[in-house]
Design a protein around this nucleic acid. Structure first.
Lengths: 347, 347
DNA sequence: TTGAAAGCGCTACCAC
DNA sequence: GTGGTAGCGCTTTCAA
């Protein structure tokens, strides 16, 4: 089923069919109708590959994410897609599962589709080689950790600030023994969150004791990490997690052990994904505005309605906001709000 | 950056470069090396569009899902992808958000990429027109509800059986007032789950009273639906949900109202997504084997290693398995295992 | 307003 | 082993 088939059936040239399909002006209503009828009758679907090959700008955007199973990335994807669709753009995604090899091959695959723009929404450190790519087409990097990408727009959430607010809040509540549950420590940006936590905790030293462990991403990883902390004998009164998913896992481990949250230990997440609100107890967390981020990404990739090139700023930061819910409270034994039952004290 | 550039730099023909890139045999190690060096030096990425246009079979599979935010669909996607990758296939997805229009445009988009096979993993009723497509390339339909698709492989989970086991289990526990929380009632397959519930409950009538409500998919939808039931004055001792996500939402509403689960009311989910285990209380649910389903889909789309066409059976059913966790128990007031506190009785 | 024809970058076939 | 080259299905000048 090709353009030519349609053209034949409508007794016009392929050029005309092409014009009709692309809504070009300068086609008589008559022929247009005839062509449309032929298209219908033949159940014709244009070959997008041929179209991109022949055509000019490829209304296609590419995005690579670290873990599409994490709703955080999914939300950003959906936000970008929501911007893209009305403008006639398609969005393709590739997933890396945090592996550098798949990062490389994902970029390759997407570039192979000759996209109009590339969004890197990954926690892995991006190889500097992509700066070359960035000089050829719009590239935006979300959360590149310390290393920003030359030639690209760098969007970053203020994790440090968010983490600061969390630790500060916990400290103000009276917590003096805290744990940090992270994952994939080698990854730049995640490492950064961990560092942020450590650095901030340091401010309060020596009054505050901390411990940091890492495991795989996800709820199971969170549970595992929590288990590690508890098995080590360290008894934090507050546990800060690198993201909400891990926090939910931590919650589970605590619950299984009969440790009450927030009665015995407070738990915090990060990101404020939908699940945070439905966890039990609902999670205190830092909101990262995924919708805004998605919009920023789109704007950095696609020229505004009239313009010819996207607005390029080198760097944009988005703020996080502390959301207090049910998973945090004063530590046990404090004057106000303390529960009666008191659990194992630190060894 | 094209094949020709590479060819020029390596002082060979484009044909040779193509051979090298596709790992064809019959190229001297010498030239191969030279070509590779040129590829590296130029940072060349093949144009996949041109490749599919020119080449034979497009190592590309397409899949459309109803709601990629539901981990159930995501798991299937990942399972198919896991099968596809080692065989050299790529997988593209499109999301419909349960809207028929987007179903149509999604199919169009995917077909436009000239995929080698199409998987429809949707809850919407598929327009019979796609049977035409199915005669041109391998198509598999997962969960087409009552309507199976001609020319296609139909994979279906035995929802009815799963729902049966759930209701039976609940009834054996002593429950006599039950509610069903569903969504998008008009959609065939989902309607079917609801019907299954109703039909099964009917078996136990008039001893069992039931009520069914529907809302949007997702945790918020579940909460909303639960609210509807409670506000109506009906006081079920057990609530069966169309999927785990909605069950988590229901759990939340119950918790907020101070209703204990499973002490006062039992709750069940469906699918057994990862979250089911991390809910509090952990969800009793019916496991739907997503991994198996993904494998079945792949096998129906891609010919086996040696063969030339996929094994085509018209229909395959997968069984569900009851997973009992913490969210179900005997209803309050029962002889054994009853809690002391007794909540509002049915009016 | 329409048609003819030149590619887009690649693969595959046929020579050498 | 390697090169030449005919398309794949489409968009886009350039003419008519």
């Amino acid at each position: 089923m090709t353009l030519e088939d349609v053209a034949k059936r409508a007794s016009v040239s392929t050029a005309t069919v092409s014009r009709v399909l692309n809504g070009a002006r300068g086609v008589s209503p008559n022929t247009r109708a005839r062509v449309m009828r032929a298209v219908e009758a033949l159940n014709y679907t244009p070959d997008l590959n041929a179209r991109s090959l022949a055509g000019g700008q490829p209304k296609l955007l590419g995005m690579v994410v670290s873990n599409i199973a994490n709703p955080f990335f999914l939300d950003i994807f959906r936000s970008v897609e929501a911007c893209a669709r009305p403008r006639g753009y398609d969005l393709i995604v590739a997933n890396t599962d945090y592996t550098p090899e798949r990062l490389a091959s994902s970029i390759e695959t997407i570039l192979g589709r000759r996209v109009a723009g590339l969004a890197l929404v990954v926690s892995e450190t991006v190889p500097p080689a992509v700066a070359t790519i960035a000089s050829a087409l719009p590239v935006v990097l979300y959360d590149g950790g310390a290393h920003r990408l030359k030639n690209a727009m760098n969007i970053r959430a203020n994790y440090r600030g968010g983490m600061h607010r969390i630790v500060e809040y916990l400290h103000a509540l009276g917590h003096r023994r805290m744990a940090f549950l992270g994952h994939h420590t080698r990854l730049g940006p995640l490492h950064e969150r961990r560092q942020a936590f450590l650095a901030i905790a340091e401010e309060y030293a020596p009054r505050v004791k901390v411990m940091a462990v890492a495991s795989a991403d996800g709820m199971s990883g969170g549970q595992e990490a929590m288990r590690q902390v508890l098995d080590s004998g360290f008894r934090p009164t507050a546990v800060a997690c690198v993201n909400d998913l891990m926090a939910v896992g931590a919650l589970r481990e605590l619950t299984v052990r009969g440790i009450s949250v927030p009665g015995d230990v407070s738990v915090t997440g990060f990101d404020n994904i939908g699940l945070a609100e439905f966890a039990r107890p609902a999670l205190t967390t830092a909101d990262v505005p995924r919708e805004t981020i998605g919009r920023l990404i789109f704007d950095a990739l696609v020229p505004p309605e009239g313009g010819d090139r996207p607005l390029t700023r080198a760097e944009v930061a988005v703020e996080t906001e502390l959301i207090v819910r049910e998973s945090t409270s004063q530590p046990p034994g404090n004057a106000r709000g303390s529960r009666t039952r008191r659990r194992t004290s630190a060894r």
